[in-house]
Amino acid sequence: MNHLEGKIVVITGASSGIGAATATALSAHGATIVAAARNQDRLDALVGEIHKAGGTAASRVTDVTDIDDVRALAEFAVGTYGTIDVLVNNAGLMLFSSWKDLAFEDWGRMIDTNIRGYLNSIHAVLPIMLEQKSGHILNMASVAGHQIGESAGVYSATKFFVRAITESMRKELGVHHGIRASTISPGVIDTGWADKVGDPAGREAAKELNNLAITSEAVADATVYALNQPANTTVNDLVISPTRQDW
């Protein structure tokens, strides 16, 4: 049975990688997509592809680190489609560096996006879900939120945070309000993130990891599985990683 038909799904970080693949996959299952990211051209291309395939989608340029911008995204979704059934909290940064590099700017960027950005999005959609007494918040986590690798201390910390708040939401919002909370924890995915690493040594390490990476579509399929469950079933944390990844 398809439980996604007609659901209104807001996806952050939707312009590329996991977000774009997830938008496409959910649309193919009958969901209506509200795609959010900072790149208008990529959002337009994504919405165009969804429409071409017979789906329904709209987009809004959004910076998840700006609470007013995220509130406006939620208002846009409700104004366009009437409600929000699902939030896929996906916008994120993974920047590698050693502690000795003192990569303070990279630390701040990850904290702003991976922590504050997730909280901003939850804050914006939760009142809607509480009022309708239903909803599903899926936070994109990482295997780095299960164990810590070299040069990934701050990134791992942000993903441990994501897992912690999701489990808290599951116990509070799920048990008492019927609002489900899930995480997907991907392993190494080739989404072009390696090119965003500012530290040269970290960038090389990231490119090495990409040699064994799986695709964004594989993570999108896992996301569809987690979201396409009956209301009495919650996928708490689904880990998906390359077969040859040894951590």
Rank of each mutant, 00 (worst) to 15 (best):
A213P: 05
I189T: 14
G202F: 03
H177N: 04
K207R: 15
L173N: 00
A213W: 06
A201S: 14
G174I: 00
V188I: 14
V239S: 11
S156A: 15
R163Y: 09
N228I: 02
K159Y: 06
L209S: 11
Q229V: 09
F160Y: 15
V197G: 05
A220F: 08
V175S: 00
F160A: 06
S156M: 10
N210V: 05
F161K: 03
A218C: 07
T234D: 03
I179E: 02
A226N: 06
R170I: 07
L212V: 13
H177V: 00
A206S: 11
T234M: 02
R163G: 11
I189F: 11
N210W: 00
A201Y: 14
A231D: 12
P186N: 05
V162I: 15
L173P: 00
K159H: 07
E204S: 13
R203Y: 03
P230C: 12
P200G: 12
D195M: 02
I189Y: 09
V188G: 03
A181K: 03
A181Y: 04
I189L: 11
A181Q: 05
K207A: 04
V224K: 10
P242H: 06
R203A: 02
A194Y: 10
E167V: 07
N232Q: 08
G198D: 15
T166E: 09
K207C: 02
Q245N: 11
L227S: 01
S185A: 13
K196P: 04
A194Q: 13
T234I: 13
S216Q: 13
K159G: 06
T191F: 09
A201F: 13
T233K: 07
V175N: 00
I214M: 14
T183Y: 05
E204G: 05
A226R: 04
V197W: 09
V219P: 06
Y155K: 08
S168I: 08
K207N: 05
S182F: 01
N228T: 03
D190M: 12
I214D: 06
A157S: 11
T223V: 15
A226C: 11
L227P: 00
K196S: 15
T233W: 06
T234P: 01
S185H: 04
G187N: 04
N236Q: 09
G192A: 14
N236E: 10
Y155M: 08
A213V: 06
S156L: 07
N232V: 02
Y225C: 03
E167F: 04
S185R: 07
T191W: 10
T166M: 12
K159W: 06
V239K: 12
D190V: 11
T158P: 06
P186S: 09
R244Y: 14
Y155T: 08
T234H: 00
V219T: 11
E172T: 07
S216F: 11
S216T: 11
S156G: 15
T234A: 04
Y225L: 13
P200E: 12
V224I: 14
D237W: 04
L173S: 00
D195C: 00
N211A: 09
T191L: 09
G192Y: 14
S168K: 02
D237T: 01
D190P: 13
T243S: 11
D221E: 15
V162D: 10
G178Y: 01
V235Y: 01
A164I: 07
P230K: 10
Y225Q: 08
V219K: 06
T243V: 14
H176F: 01
G192N: 13
D199G: 08
R180F: 06
S241L: 15
R163C: 10
E172C: 02
H176Y: 01
